[in-house]
Nucleic acid binder design. Structure first.
Length: 478
RNA sequence: CGAGGUGUAGCUCAGCUGGUAGAGUGCUUGGUUUGGGACCAAGAUGCCGCAGGUUCGAGUCCUGUCACCUCGACCA
């Protein structure tokens, strides 16, 4: 193969050093830059454009389902944060505190929001009085701060952008439906927009959100076999309502506490698409969120008519997709490598030879397949190809996930797989936290989620051998 | 927060027992090129991470500190 090695010279290969490959891509594709504040990053235009595209799709979906956007304060008084005991215990170790306003010391210190349950609850306590006030389906797009010990771009940063939905309902059933509905929204978003097949399930007691009654998650498998918790949806029952004194008159004219949910996803999803789809040439972006879907590379631009033709194509395509033309002085080879590195789903090459034949060359980023397309058929060919790239990416990721998912029926098997294979282990579990601890200590695999909808693969816990309650997906996690 | 590693040009890095700051690549300008990271010529670019210390003299030695990376513990 006349492979030009230079094409990948500046990106560390995945197999050689996955972590370095990741940072190389993040930097080379100009997704982000480090700032002078530890753990806080500058999201650069290309990275932010990806985020904006994700936000646009999700925000539309949320609104279709009746949610409304709001904006909550970024500061939380200490006393407010402390109202729900489990919640404060979970978040206290990682909050940033504001102690001074100007030169003056504050009477009560304020924490920079790590999440906004407490603020929503305080507000709900004021505005919810009757069953007629329910439900409230609120969401906010904002950034939050968690003082993490170690940080990595997009995967774990001190400040990160996210969306947090907070809803409040009349009945537990309604709240639980909301929790599951939003989990499904995330799962579908991963499949239909990000082309990632995520595992959907429930967190165990030890992994659930601080203050939640139950937490649901989608877990995505990365190229190196580690799992990434990619979005969560929580059912709160009436814990928070009781702690914050949220009460309404129900249909029987009696006082009652309402039921709540919260659900969120973050810029970590950018990390997920990098590590789920990327390759040694760089990023591979799902067409639906790619800031540029088609890049046009004119060949032998100075020859008569080439640039004109390329621009004509660009103007046509601009009506149906996000298109860019690169008419810079760089060599075609440089441009090919550059836009592959940036993950652009389709490259359109047009040169004198093509123009003679009224055609162009289109190359897919996901499998590098070349096709010749008649110029008269571009308007139908491009959307079709974008769709093919999407499904090609999803299929590839699904096949890899299946290949990297193994069943274990006892602890010997479990340890063997954990040692030799990366990826998910499907194994039965007795429900005992001790077994999660044992697995973590001996294999570094943690429970990712309970997945009872797949049916049992045994009746004994794969770790301790006692009667099993649940099928659990286990993995090394980010 | 524990263990280890790295900070020198935009990037990747060299710089010996202390003695005027280097290369490749990138960048700028002009020209020739163009189907997988082109070529020629001319140019610009450094608080050697930061702060102290030792020394006649520190990129180099010492102390501290900060940031980043890896592996743990913690987490979206």
């Amino acid at each position: 193969m006349p492979e030009n090695k230079k094409a990948v010279e500046e990106i560390t290969s995945m197999d050689e050093d996955f972590a370095k490959w990741y940072t190389d891509i993040v930097k080379k594709a100009e997704l982000m830059d480090y700032s002078s504040v530890k753990g806080c990053m500058v999201i650069e235009p290309y990275g932010y454009a990806i985020w904006e595209n994700m936000v646009a799709v999700l925000d539309k979906k949320f609104k279709e389902l009746g949610h409304q956007n709001v904006s909550m304060p970024m500061f939380i008084p200490e006393s407010l944060l402390q109202k729900e005991k489990d919640h404060i215990e979970g978040f206290a170790p990682e909050v940033a505190w504001v102690t001074h306003g100007g030169e003056e010391k504050l009477q009560e210190r304020l924490c920079v929001r790590p999440t906004s349950e407490t603020l929503f609850c305080e507000h709900y306590a004021k505005i919810v009085h009757s069953w007629r006030d329910l439900p409230k389906l609120y969401n906010q797009w904002c950034s939050v701060v968690r003082w993490e010990k170690t940080t990595r771009p997009f995967l774990r940063s001190t400040e990160f952008q996210w969306q947090e939905g907070h809803t409040i309902h009349e009945t537990p059933e309604e709240a639980m439906n909301e929790t599951m509905q939003m989990l499904n929204v995330y799962h579908d978003f991963f499949k239909n927009v990000l082309a990632i097949p995520a595992i959907k399930g429930q967190k165990t007691e030890s992994e659930k959100f601080a203050g939640a009654e139950s937490t649901y998650t989608i877990e995505a498998l990365m190229h190196d076999g580690k799992a990434l918790q990619s979005a969560t949806s929580h059912y709160f029952g009436d814990h928070f309502a009781k702690a914050f004194g949220i009460e309404f008159q129900n249909r029987d004219n009696k006082p009652q506490n309402p039921y709540q949910t919260s659900w969120g996803c973050t810029t970590r999803m950018i990390g997920a698409i990098i590590m789920a789809h990327g390759d040694d040439r760089g990023l591979v972006l799902p067409p639906k969120i790619a800031p540029i879907q088609v890049v046009i590379v004119p060949i032998a631009m100075k020859k008569e008519g080439v640039l004109e033709k390329a621009n004509e194509i660009k103007n046509r395509l601009a009506k149906i997709c996000r298109v860019k033309i690169d008419d810079s002085d760089k060599s075609p080879g440089w441009k090919f490598a550059e836009y592959e590195m940036r993950g652009i789903p389709l490259r359109l090459e047009i040169g004198p030879k093509d123009i003679e034949k009224n055609q162009c060359v289109i190359v897919r980023r996901d499998n590098l397949e070349k096709t010749f397309v008649n110029l008269d058929e571009l308007e139908t060919a491009i959307p079709e190809l974008l769709e093919k790239v999407h499904s090609g990416m999803y299929e590839k990721a699904l096949i890899r996930r299946n290949q990297m998912t193994h069943e274990a029926h006892n602890f010997e098997e479990f340890k063997n797989i954990a040692e030799k294979e990366a990826g998910f282990i499907k194994a039965m579990w007795c429900g005992n936290e001790e077994c999660e601890k044992t697995s973590k200590e001996q294999t570094a695999f943690t429970s990712r989620c309970i997945k009872d909808d797949e049916g049992k693969i045994g009746d004994k816990c794969a770790i301790c051998g006692r009667p099993a309650k649940h099928l659990v997906y286990w993995a090394k996690a980010y």
